[in-house]
Structure formats: structure tokens, C-alpha cells
Nucleic acid binder design. Structure first.
Lengths: 245, 245
DNA sequence: TTATGTGAAAGCGTTCACAGCC
DNA sequence: GGCTGTGAACGCTTTCACATAA
């Protein structure tokens, strides 16, 4: 999975980050710590469950659901066990009920306002992407400094100038932002967003964003994805016996 | 990291897949198996090295390079050690030389032809994305079944109809394809691509693509990325003491 | 009998810490 | 002295395998 960006290897070989990245107040129970790897899969399960619900299937076994989600069934059961015991032994899981439970955990019980900074090709595509809406994300702000883009609008939402960033964040209350600017502008934008109270950032720039502790960062690097594929192609060329994965 | 899609949990609780996904011919040396996690970071190192080279810096320590790449220096050294011993103790790494070595492994010593199937908002953005070109990927084919898109062209490359897929793949020799179609078309497209000899697929559809062993799949699910961020926001709301990551 | 929930084992990946070399 | 290269320790993730419950 993708770790959030964080300053690493500080010059002073200071105290090691505690696993949770926090003061060791973790051993207490109240906070059921769900593993990161599990969290990353919950949306996948949710999607599979939604498809089942559409097909009017109301009970599903761990095996069937695991197959639909592309994971091992033991893994699925373990993942779900972190949320609680929502299945029935000998039977399986109630699709609707499980959907609700996962949805609650994942936060899709409510709508999330999101702003997008940078409306080049990629940013514009994201602004138009229906997959966000269907998962409860509402694009409520569009920001770009380019004069020729400002005031153009997408789905009825006008693009604001970068100088209005503060207003937009304050007005929309967005805690989640998407950065789709050129690489060299990304860090500055991130700094401003963090200063305005944004606590989650999804970015597409092939750079390491440095943000304070407490801010979530996820990075999607499209060039990197292709390079990983190219690596395997490369290997296959060099050594035809080598197996692709 | 993201595993490639693969049919899991087969109905027959058959023999477990060997770790490498192949016959146990692995213990031999010749094939230096580089961990997937490392492979995913090599492009990051490469990018950092390129920046250093631009700044005319020709030697770099593991600490400095690690910081630029956003990883721990021990990790960087271990990663590089899988490629060979390219550093000098007491000194560091020669930027240019290391760049060459990583580039060779990653396959960026050559250009990779890539085709894009599906030219909606996202596909079009990808076709225009300069980050592919700069990393050695050449978009050599564009495919979409929509009559209103066919023959339109992007950067001088005309969009071909889906019926011409076979021709395009044969003509361009692309082994890597990007699928940016609607979710319900993705599997069919993948099947055809695989049939035509494509062995690496990057896709953006929020579905599990089933492909034969030996085909690489990487998935980028933008909605899922936001949902992971939303989960952490959600947690922070529920329990303000909970630390974000 | 069927299928969940979960300890225990195995497998990976990261980090530590230091031997080895410049 | 400085910095790489790497065995060993650690912690996280996945998988196994079975007790448990319907």
C-alpha cells in the first residue's frame, strides 16, 4: 500500500516513530485499530457488495465475496473481523447489513466535499469523473491560476483563481483536496491547503510532498505505474523464463 | 503496494501458489529476484537522481538521496543492494552511474510503445499527459468505439475504432496498454488485449480484472483513493485523539 | 454439514546496527 | 572518520487450519 509522505531519516537519529506515529497511548482498547492494509480493501468490498445488491442477492459467503473482490477468502474474513462479527456461521453475510457496516466505517454514510486544484487535462478529467460522485464525494471547488481557465465552468461549477483558495476552502468546508497541478507547483499548493485546514490530500505530481504530521497524503503517480509494468516487460525480455506478475 | 489481479481462492483448495507464482525454479541465483516493493521505488529514485543531475551534482550519499525520495536511508541502501554494489564506501553514489544502472533495470533505457483504450475525459487526459513521454513511454495507439471520437486526433495521433484494435496492436507492437473505458467494458477489452499479445495492463476501472497468469495488471482506482482518505477523516471525527496517517 | 471467526504460522518488508572498505 | 552493504531483529500482512456456532 502507499504510505503517506513524511519526512524520514531526520538528521538527528532521534527517537523512532512509534508504529502508530503517535505517543504510545495505543495499547488501550476503545480505539479498534484497523490495519492500513485492511482499510485499503474496504472500498473494494463495498463495491463488490453494491454489485451484489444490484443483482438482488442478499446473502453472500466469504468465498464468493472474496472472489468478487479479488482476494483470498481468509483475508476477507480476517478483514471483516476487525469491524466486528457481522456474519452468520454456516450461512454467510447479509449483503445489505454488511454494506451498511462497512459504509459506516469507511465514512460513506455521509457526503464529503472535495476541492480540486489544477485544472489541466488531468484535473478536468477528475472534475468530470462520475466515480467520485457515486462514492459520496462532491466536488465543491475548482481552483486554477490560469486566467484563461478562471470562470470557465465544469458541471455548473466555476473555476476560481488561486488567490481565492482561502475563500473556497472556508466556504465549502472541504477537508479533502486533490492536487493536479504541475509538479513544481504541488508543494506550494499543499502548504497553502494545509494552512487552511485541509487534512487529506490526493496528489498526482511525481514529487514527494512534505506535510506536517496529522495530514493524510496519498499519491498517484501514473508514470511510475507504467514504469513498474515496464520493469516486468524488461525482465521478461532479458530472461524469458522469468515469470511475470 | 498493489498486487496484480489474479484469480484467488480457487474452488479446489489446490496447491498453493509458490511465492514467485511459478514452478519452484527460483532458489537458483542467476535470477536476482528484486522485491516488488523495491521495484515500485526504483522509479522514485530515478526521478530524484535526474533532479540531482540537473543541478550538476555528481555524487550523493544514501542519506541525501533517501531524503529526496522520501524514504529511510537504510531502505534506500537495501534497495540499491538488490541491483548490485554501485556505491563507494565513505563517499556515496555517482549520480550518473547510478542513474544508468537503475534505468537499465527499470527498462527506461529504451522507449516503450503504449496504447490507450477508451478516450473519455480520463483517457484523453492520459493521452495528453507529458509525464509518460518524459519517462520513455510513447503513446502510439488510441482506441475508442464512439463514432464521434473516431478520427479525431490527439497530438497528431488519430483515434481508431475498437474494431481496429488488432491492427493497432500488431502495427505498433505495443506490449503495454492502458484501459480507461467505463467499468463494464474493461474486462472485455482486457480479454481482447491479452488475446492480441498485450502482457501489461494499467487500468482505471473500479473492477477486478481477471487475466491469465503471465499478464501484469496494475489498477488505479481514484474513488478508492479518496475513500481511504475519507476513512481517516471519519476516524478523526469519531475520535479526535486518533492520529491521522 | 456448512461457513464464520480467529489463534498460530509463514512470508514480506522495513529498520537497526555494525562490519567492512574507502 | 565517513558511508556503504548487509545479517539480524522487528513488525506488519497474509495464509493456514480448526474450534465454534448455526
Amino acid at each position: 500500500m502507499q504510505p503517506s509522505a513524511r519526512a524520514t531519516d531526520p538528521v538527528s537519529t532521534g527517537p523512532v516513530l512509534t508504529p502508530g506515529g503517535t505517543t504510545p497511548t495505543r495499547p488501550s482498547e476503545a480505539t479498534r485499530g484497523i490495519p492500513d492494509a485492511t482499510i485499503a480493501r474496504l472500498p473494494v468490498y463495498l463495491r463488490a457488495l453494491n454489485q451484489l445488491a444490484e443483482s438482488e442477492i442478499d446473502t453472500v459467503s466469504s468465498r464468493a465475496l472474496a472472489e468478487a473482490a479479488g482476494v483470498n477468502s481468509a483475508q476477507l474474513r480476517k478483514d471483516l473481523s476487525y469491524l466486528g462479527s457481522y456474519g452468520t456461521r454456516g450461512v454467510g453475510y447479509d449483503v445489505d447489513y454488511l454494506r451498511q457496516q462497512i459504509g459506516r466505517q469507511v465514512g460513506s454514510a455521509r457526503d464529503w466535499p472535495v476541492i480540486i486544484v489544477g485544472l489541466g487535462n488531468l484535473g478536468t478529467a477528475l472534475a468530470n469523473y462520475s466515480g467520485f460522485y457515486s462514492r459520496g464525494f462532491r466536488v465543491v471547488g475548482l481552483i486554477d491560476p490560469a486566467p484563461e481557465l478562471v470562470d470557465r465552468n465544469i458541471h455548473g461549477l466555476a473555476i476560481s483563481d488561486l488567490t481565492e483558495l482561502e475563500d473556497v476552502v472556508a466556504r465549502t468546508g472541504a477537508a479533502i483536496a486533490v492536487i493536479a497541478t504541475p509538479a513544481d507547483a504541488a508543494q506550494a499548493v499543499a502548504d497553502r491547503l494545509v494552512g487552511l485546514g485541509v487534512t487529506s490530500i490526493l496528489h498526482f505530481a511525481p514529487v514527494v510532498l512534505l506535510v506536517p504530521d496529522g495530514v493524510n497524503v496519498r499519491k498517484v503517480d501514473l508514470g511510475q505505474e507504467l514504469q513498474i509494468l515496464a520493469y516486468h516487460e524488461q525482465r521478461a525480455l532479458v530472461d524469458p523464463h522469468e515469470v511475470r506478475r
